[in-house]
Amino acid sequence: MAITLQKGGNVNLSKEAPNLAHMLIGLGWDARSTDGQDFDLDASLFMVGADNKVPNDAFFIFYNQPKSPDGSVEHTGDNLTGSGDGDDEAIKVDLKRAPPEIQKLVVAVTIHDAEARKQNFGQVANAFIRIVNMDNNVEIARFDLSEDYSTETAMIFGEVYRNGADWKFRAVGQGFSGGLRALALQHGVHVG
């Protein structure tokens, strides 16, 4: 039985799933059911150190750079409309291969071309993030975003972080304006 988290809540993944090695981070939202331009939501992951910055730009995992240099994190691809059941986007993490200097995996979702399309997270319904143990396909934790966010165009859904020898997951649900660019800059990525 997966643990359902509230905004700000956390769970010790290593305790819930001892020997957790291969993790899938699933992200979802409802596709647009009205007419107009599709919502193209993109999942990204920042592998950051203790300073909350990426060691270098290669640790910013997104649609143009789907795999980390060490191979521990892999983005499985972009779903352009959000249609289909289950996860709309997914990121695979091999925790045992994550470099020791990486303290935290920050999982964010941004709305592509949000300003031009006049879109924001308030128009996205039923967003969630979930953590699945890939070795037995059991969902460990889930966070249904609360709809308290609204006009932001970027959103940190959650983060997976080290706590001693354990890995924990926190439900964040924090929105930002400025889209992926602002979020990348904040995490130390050199955006061209």
């Binding site: 006049k118 879109q119 924001n120 997270f121 308030g122 128009q123 709809e147 308290d148 966010y149 609204s150 006009t151």
Partner: peptide, 8 residues
């Protein structure tokens, strides 16, 4: 209230 905004 802006387009897309949600408020309690």
């Amino acid at each position: 209230i802006r387009l897309g905004q949600r408020v309690k």
